[in-house]
Design a protein around this nucleic acid. Structure first.
Lengths: 259, 259
DNA sequence: CGCCTTCTTGAGATGACTCAATGGTGGTGG
DNA sequence: CCACCACCATTGAGTCATCTCAAGAAGGCG
């Protein structure tokens, strides 16, 4: 569990790329009139990079920033005092990371980079005044928070009521659909497969099951021709069957990905 | 699973009681200058009552309102297409119910009254403009949403990583501390026990375990002198032992109750 | 009193875990 | 280019926590 600590690398002066713009549109500043965003410019230039396999912040740390993820995959985790770790969710481009009810003090979860990531940092201490100065921003944050809620609700439903195969299929399907809906914001995505930088152990931590059992369940799903995870890629072989196993309907899942 | 449908009874004209005021302070309008709340007056008078054992709204329903819970216990549930039901959380006075990322369209969960409840209704369609007009409100909603998130995170950690006894203890402890911290906003609370209107079956649905297993686990905890649920009351017999079993520290749990 | 919901307990079945061993893969440095 | 290392995936066998099914007992309510 000892990972390298993050070294934030400011990519100052980097001309804003098209992809970042697109992410911004989906993320925090979506729908906010440009003239109200002038003052945020300072923050929007705080672009950082973080390497794969490094920790952005730890659970319990008094971390000064919250972030918008521009590119890459991250993983948010929380541990019990007994040391057992749960993956709360996987973050994708556009996600807001580190926003929580107490705007100062300890982070309620840790954030870990699964791939190289680019992020935009906001001082947590200023979030409250930012929200008051820019209602649209506050509304947008409430929305992003509500969206995360809806993911969590799905996960909780899955974790509480479904068996291993079903949970696993749910997780994979949801990530698949989210990545597909992000389109070219996530590289190496093609028609029927996506990049999938999550080890079986981590899937296990997200689903409350052991890595071995993830493995066995994946084998079953592969043998049944439902889906396949191979060399860090996820391919859905039979979408309808997968939806059936996961007990979700496409409508729900797509709607959610678009929020 | 067939429950009576709610009959919302407007208690118009009822002079605002002291307790309601206190709840409001904790809830949506906390910290917002009174002069900015004039226009919300219309909504604040939309007080409703709903009977125990009735459904406020169903999952999937296109329900026109979101609510602040003034008094009583509610339960928020979500079902898989296979019909298995998960309790997402129990709502207590001050909680905001029905706020979600899509401000129109289907509710992502159902809401059910465990006791008689009083609520304040807000048209969902107007929430967006309300937030834009009153930044403090938007900020507050983001905060309430973030608080719910933090509960969900705890529950997810418990559901994924802890065994039956531990999960059960976590749930009971958290509800206990929350109710205690609400003080006289929840009736029938005394020094070392609280009213507890949750059946074993419902605890099971919240924790992802069968009612039978809840029962057995409760028996163990009672026999070990940890806690006791009897005739709709919950009593903590040995707080330290309970915290130990649940693998939570008092600090976390209290901090959370206060948000 | 009778009805319904909730609680309680038992016995057997099983899904998921634990422990243990082996094989594969990609990256790094000599 | 090879050898090594760390991490990850795979598989098996035995165990255990939790579920399922079944049957009563207890409690609240009209």
């Amino acid at each position: 569990m000892n990972h390298k600590r993050s070294q934030l690398v400011a990519t100052s002066g980097t001309p804003t790329q098209c992809v970042s713009c697109a992410v911004r549109e989906r993320a925090l500043f979506q729908g906010i009139p440009p003239e109200q965003l002038k003052w945020t410019q300072t923050y929007r230039e705080n672009q950082y990079r973080i390497e794969a396999r490094s920790q952005l912040f730890e659970e319990g740390e008094d971390h000064p920033f919250a972030y918008t993820l521009y590119s890459g995959w991250m993983m948010l985790t929380k541990s019990s005092t007994g040391g057992r770790r749960q993956v709360l969710r996987f973050a994708l481009p556009g996600d807001f990371i580190g926003f929580q009810a107490n705007l100062s003090g300890n982070m309620s979860y840790g954030a870990y980079a699964l791939t190289d990531c680019r992020l935009c940092a906001f001082p947590r201490a200023r979030l409250s005044s930012m929200m008051k100065e820019t209602p649209e921003l506050a509304a947008r944050m409430a929305m992003l928070s509500a969206r995360d809620m809806s993911f969590m609700e799905q996960v909780l439903l899955a974790t509480g009521q479904k068996n291993a195969r079903e949970r696993l299929t749910s997780l994979l399907l949801q990530l698949y659909v989210r990545v597909q809906s992000l389109g070219n914001l996530v590289p190496e995505t093609d028609e029927n497969s996506i990049r999938f930088p999550i080890s079986q152990e981590k899937m296990g931590e997200a689903l409350g099951m052991t890595a071995e059992h993830v493995n066995r369940s994946l084998r079953e799903l592969r043998e049944e021709g439902v889906l396949e995870v191979k060399s860090r890629r996820l391919k859905i072989l039979n979408l309808n069957r997968a939806l059936e196993i996961a007990e979700i309907d496409m409508q729900t899942i797509e709607q959610q990905a678009l929020l």
